[in-house]
Design a protein around this nucleic acid. Structure first.
Length: 303
DNA sequence: CACTTGACCTGTCCGC
DNA sequence: TGCGGACAGGTCAAGT
């Protein structure tokens, strides 16, 4: 669930809360969540201070003074929550926070800083991971070597999008948008939302897209991602920011998780289908299947 | 080689 | 109320 806007929101929060802090100790309860050996942890993590917090695609990279970095992928249910000694979660409006007492049963890694504040890596489904990697080797990790362009960089023009998409001409568009080697950071929520905004059916073959449609998709992707970052991301079930707070983008979503409700543009019912194994939300009227349209036209001609 | 399916996990929800 | 199964959806590996 954490996609580009959620990870970016966490990055901004962590940068504000963690920079300059020194790591005192680390504990973990699930080997796969943090597979480094104890020698490396003692040498490069304990005693190191935090220099910067960066993001590439859906991955966080916390650079340490030891010339090592903590590379973190939250996958679907991962959370990174900072807790200062003084901060009391549960204070404020109850709907603001999903986090109660920490650590809890989904806490996989707990990092304690000098002074007593803590960073919790929670992950219900244990798909996420955190890894200690020499900073100069981070971009050599397999994932980064093949990952596509950042959609919010100015260099991500519609022509770049077109060129990346056209490597997969025969594929349905949606799975291509989700492919991190094509574009970085887009997941299920923002794929559905940007396709709705651009009025493109998710099953449309990439090779059938006109330049006009690609320009529209390009702008829609950027609009959706920028708005979501401004709203602090989407909280569907698990996602919270570095302070344990929800994001509100889901209130602005037009189709995602809105099956059965009226399309905000035409009023017809939003449907949920399965595309490449993933739940996909769309308006069949606003996002007609190009193939089906062509077929209908052909029948019409025969008649 | 392009594309699909299964594995990794746990919690929740739905039907019987 | 319990129980099995589907579903949630990011990424890699394996299969067609």
């Amino acid at each position: 669930m954490p996609e580009l806007p959620e990870v970016e929101t966490i990055r901004i929060g962590l940068a504000k809360l963690l920079l300059g802090k020194t790591i005192k100790s680390v504990t973990f309860d699930w080997q796969k969540s943090f597979p480094n050996d104890q020698t490396q942890v003692n040498k490069y993590l304990i005693g190191a201070s935090l220099k910067s917090v960066n993001r590439r695609a859906k991955v966080l990279i916390i650079e340490l003074s030891s010339h090592y970095s903590l590379v973190i992928h939250l996958k679907m249910t991962g959370q990174l929550v900072y807790k200062d000694k003084e901060v009391r979660f549960g204070a404020g409006h109850p709907s603001d926070s999903l986090i109660g007492h920490l650590p809890d049963k989904s806490t996989r890694v707990e990092i304690v800083f000098l002074g007593g504040s803590k960073l919790f890596f929670n992950d219900q489904r244990k798909f996420g991971w955190m890894r200690l990697v020499a900073s100069e080797l981070v971009m050599d990790m397999d994932f980064f070597k093949k990952v596509g362009p950042e959609p919010l960089q100015p260099s991500f023009t519609w022509q770049v999008l077109k060129q990346r998409l056209m490597r997969r001409k025969n594929s349905a568009l949606k799975p291509v948008l989700l492919d991190q080697s094509v574009i970085a950071g887009v997941g299920n929520i923002y794929a559905d939302e940007s396709l709705w905004a651009a009025r493109i059916n998710p099953l449309t073959k990439v090779g059938l897209l006109s330049d006009r449609k690609i320009k529209l998709l390009h702008q829609s992707l950027i609009n959706v991602l920028v708005l979501s970052i401004a709203k602090g991301g989407s909280t569907d079930k698990n996602y919270v920011n570095a302070e344990g707070k929800r994001g509100s983008y889901i209130d602005f979503a037009k189709v995602f998780r809105r099956d059965g409700l009226p399309c905000p543009r035409c009023g017809r019912e939003i449907v949920k289908i399965r595309v490449a194994g993933r739940g996909t939300h769309l308006c069949l009227f606003c996002q007609p299947d190009i193939k089906r349209k062509a077929f209908t036209k052909k029948i019409g001609t025969i008649n």
